[in-house]
Design a protein around this nucleic acid. Structure first.
Lengths: 225, 225
DNA sequence: ACGAGCATGACACGCAGATGACACTTCTCT
DNA sequence: AGAGAAGTGTCATCTGCGTGTCATGCTCGT
């Protein structure tokens, strides 16, 4: 799940980046309206977190323009301005939610989940992903196979989540790299292979059918039937 | 499904080559306008991916010239120039779609599928190819005959896909070489024969009618009735 | 029945993917 | 703050499968 964070203050953005990635999101950061706009039109983001008060342009203007061009991801506005007028303006001009700074992290996360749930595709509705005897609870960041809890690291969980969301479909290494690691072209890396290996060592069991299948020359699939 | 990728940057072209071939396309690469032009007039491509900014000639000029000469495959333009003017210019001069770099791979694939669908034969619509009791799911990369799953390798799958897309029509060895193997193989070879043989050993069954028929001196046909 | 064209089996090589070890970073707990 | 543990990415090595080539056997068409 990829988010766009638009925030010019360095400390805040660091904090957000960490907090969000700890909660399983992939983050792209923009420190000004220009890069934000470029990123927003390029990548497909599940949501945007926008801190008002950018150096080069008013955040609201940016959002209005994006939405006018068909940008559809929900926008969560962060702002120090707490007046009712400001809130109304923010929500009227394209914000889907408005959070006053300083805010509590749990609230931010909750509101974010709300936004994501609201315009998620039907299959995205729940916070639990189930594929055969595999179960991922996205809220609790817990995974289990056949009832047995799996002790997964952050990356492993993200990888498995991606596989689950695409269960039955083949996902290529490039897709995984882009969506799970969120990075651009990294010419020759085998991170994906290694993490698949580690994931397998936790997910697969000799007494249960194989879940993660390799499609040579293509990528991997998660069995869904 | 063969694509022509015109891109001079080595890293980018590597990335594209890999990402696209992972998704089942056959790729020919051109690093400059000259080779691009030669290839475009030779092979028949389902689509072209063009990165603007070639060393020897402006990509748009190239496209304009090709289209003027009756080149009809859709062109997807990749460019770092994101200004509205540039986009408009690109789309007006022969581009069928315009994607600003950096782009998200899923979007590129989606747009590509769109382009291919737009001027494809009616049978191209879905991700499932069906010919009698034979079924290919392109997304899952699964093939089955009469309900039984077939365990095909990458090349076998590509070959069978090509046969399916041309079911009922005779395809020659050189057509197969061109479309399935691309340009990376020498004329004097019997790879096709060998792979047809291997494919038959998996597809054909004594209790079911023959699917792959040999047309002596010409090529092969996939039975479609 | 003869030759060209195709089928078939064997083989060798290369490469994709699996695996283990290691270096480096980040987190955790005293 | 510092030691230890856990997490993550890179690299080197290993393995087996997939692939293309070749030699030989078979078959169809005339």
């Amino acid at each position: 799940m990829k988010l766009l964070v638009i925030e010019d203050d360095l400390a805040n953005s660091k904090f957000l980046e960490r907090a969000l990635s700890e909660n399983g999101y992939t983050i792209d950061l923009a420190h000004n309206a220009a890069t934000a706009e470029r990123l927003a039109m390029d990548g497909d983001y599940a949501a945007v977190i926008l801190d008002l008060g950018l150096p080069d342009e008013d955040g609201l203007t940016l959002i209005t323009r994006l939405k006018a061009r068909g940008f559809s991801a929900p926008v969560l506005i962060l702002s120090a301005r707490r007046a009712v007028d400001d809130r109304v303006r923010g929500l009227e001009q394209g914000g889907d939610d408005y959070l006053v700074k300083p805010y509590a992290l749990p609230e931010l996360l909750a509101r974010l989940r709300n936004l994501l749930r609201r315009n998620a595709s039907p299959s995205d509705q729940s916070t639990v992903l189930r594929v055969l005897d595999l179960e991922l609870n996205l809220l609790r960041r817990e995974a289990s196979r056949a009832g047995e809890t799996l002790q997964l690291t952050t990356q492993e969980f993200a990888l498995l989540e991606f596989l689950c969301r695409n269960s039955g479909r083949v996902v290529t290494r490039s897709m995984i790299l882009q969506q799970v690691w969120g990075m651009r072209i990294q010419p020759d890396t085998n991170v994906v292979d290694v993490h698949i290996y580690r994931l397998r060592s936790k997910v697969e069991r000799p007494d249960l059918p194989t879940m993660i299948r390799t499609i040579r020359g293509v990528g991997y699939v998660l069995r869904d039937k």
